[in-house]
Structure formats: C-alpha cells, structure tokens
C-alpha cells in the first residue's frame, strides 16, 4: 500500500537516517550502526507495506510490526515520528530523563507494538500475534525484524521450528543480516552459514535480497504471503552503518556516538 502523505522510500530513508544520527549524537547513545543497516527496510515497510494508521494505532485489523532487535531504537522512533504517530520534536527527548523514548524500544511509544531489548523475544510474540490474527480472520499480517546476532538465541529456533508447522503464512520475518554482532563478526562469533539453507530446511519460504535495494525490498515484502501455508523469511543482506562511510562495517559503531564534527560529516553523507 502507498500512503500519499508519506515520501518515497528513498527520501523517507534519508530523513530517518538523519534523525537517528542526530538523536544518537545528542543522547550520546549506542547502536547507530544497526540503525543505519535497517533504515531502508523500515522505509519500505512503513511507506509501502504496513497497514497501520497513526490515527488509529490500536485498530484490531492492523498489520503488526515487531522489532525484535530492540536496541535499534533511534531509527524506529524516527520512523514512527515521520509517519505521524507523534511529532518530530519529541525525538529530541530520546534517552533523556523522564522520556518515554528509552534506549531499547518501548511500547509506551505510540506505534510500538512490544517492548524488546533482550534478544530472542520478538519472534515468539510475533507468532502469537499471527496465530491470533489468523483465528480472527481479519487478514492482518505480522512482520518481525531480527538481527543476525540474535539468531544465536535458542528461543528463535523454537519459533522457527513452530511457524512452518502451523502454516503461518501471515508471518514474515526479516533478518537484518549486517554480518556484525556485538563483539565481532557473525562468522567469527557464531557462524550462521549456511543461513538460508537452515531456514529452508525448517520449512520457510526464503527470499534473499540486498537489504538496501528499495525496489527489491518493496517487491518481496509486498508479496507476503509469498507462499500459502508457509511463513516467509526475507534475509536482507545489509551493511552495518550503511550510508556513512566511516561507520560502514565497523564494529565500534555498535557502541560509539559521533562527535560534533563526525555528526556533521555523517549528515552530509546521508544527504541531510
């Protein structure tokens, strides 16, 4: 679906990257790298795919989006603000005393379905929502965004086993596969390969795409359910820190916040 009041995905992604950079800089917060890697995914989801309405955020028939990599909040809050769930000025309170905008995603924020932050929680919750949606027959779809690092968690594999068994074709998992987790590369810490084959063996409809190719994202996500009687996983190959040259593929930007000078450079690079 296209919401006429929202910009094209490319422009939307540019805006949310800029907001997230400013927020992380102002709050001296972490996790900008994982925010930037999923920016294009969120841009396509919220401008083209999700049936959600800021005027009626609790509509029973809405699509659900569960952010399981709950540390990537700056970009999530920026996305919701750009969609009109709350005003852009509220982003200035990110991580400030008394703010609802906590460093791990909070359901106190309008438009956020669930609070996460401990990894491996989002997928089971999304499965429950998909079961309830199917039972209700309202046609809602549930999208759940995982990080690659959190695929170390056994709870995810319980869910990965469960969803195809129960033919949850209204469920779509997206993995932000940026190849870097908190203490090293995924390949070094706990290798996921062959990743797509694992999902296939568990019975999922697997789509593997460039997670920064907006057209490819829109094509794949608008096709959900991609196969009847099967859940879909979109393995989105991404770059941690995407869009800011000195952050790309650098582990340290899981933790650091940019200085004033680096912020200016980063904003220039993302076109803000």
């Amino acid at each position: 679906m296209t919401r006429p009041n929202l910009p094209e995905p490319k422009e939307f992604a540019r805006r949310i990257r800029a907001h997230a950079l400013r927020m992380v800089h102002a709050a001296k917060a972490s996790h900008i790298g994982g925010c930037l890697s999923m920016a294009d995914i969120l841009a396509v989801l919220y401008t083209r795919i999700l049936r959600v309405d800021p005027a009626e955020p609790q509509s029973p028939s809405r699509d659900r989006f569960v952010l399981s990599k709950g540390h990537a909040t700056a970009i999530m809050y920026a996305t919701l603000a750009e969609c009109g769930f709350f005003s852009l000025t509220e982003l200035d309170t990110y991580c400030r005393d008394g703010s609802i905008f906590t460093g791990h995603v909070s359901h106190a924020v309008p438009g956020v379905e669930v609070s996460t932050g401990s990894l491996g929680h989002g997928l089971p919750i999304a499965i429950g929502m998909a079961l309830a949606a199917r039972h209700a027959g309202a046609g809602s779809r549930v999208f759940c965004l995982l990080s690659d690092g959190e695929c170390d968690e056994g709870s995810n594999w319980e869910g990965i086993l469960f969803a195809p068994h129960h033919k949850l074709d209204n469920l779509c998992v997206i993995v932000d596969f940026n190849k870097i987790q908190s203490f090293g590369s995924v390949a070094e810490v706990l290798n996921l390969d062959p990743f797509a084959e694992k999902w296939k063996a568990f019975g999922w409809q697997v789509e593997e795409i460039d997670g920064h190719d907006l057209a490819a994202l829109e094509h794949v996500l608008s096709g959900v359910p991609a196969a009847s009687n099967r859940p879909t996983v979109v393995i989105a190959h991404t770059v941690k820190g995407k869009g800011v040259s000195f952050m790309e593929n650098k582990l340290e930007w899981h933790y650091r916040s940019p200085s004033d000078e680096l912020l200016a450079q980063a904003l220039a690079e993302v076109g803000a």
Binding site: P60, E113, V114, G120, H121, L123, P124, I125, A126, I127, G128, M129, A130, L131, A132, A133, H135, A136, G154, S155, E158, G159, L161, F162
Partner: peptide, 28 residues
C-alpha cells in the same frame, strides 16, 4: 480445538506466543 495448542517442548516460545496472543485481545 481452535483455542488449544500444544506448542511443543519449548517453553520460551510458549510464553512469547502466549504474550502475542494476549496482546491481540485474548486470555491465554
């Protein structure tokens, strides 16, 4: 039968699924 589910030997998944169903308006 449509409100009963054996989730399997997977309690973390069971608790998360229960939360997801409950957050959709049910009592689980």
């Amino acid at each position: 039968p449509d409100r009963y589910l054996n989730v399997g030997v997977a309690e973390q998944n069971m608790a998360g699924i229960a939360a997801g169903i409950a957050l959709s308006g049910k009592t689980v």
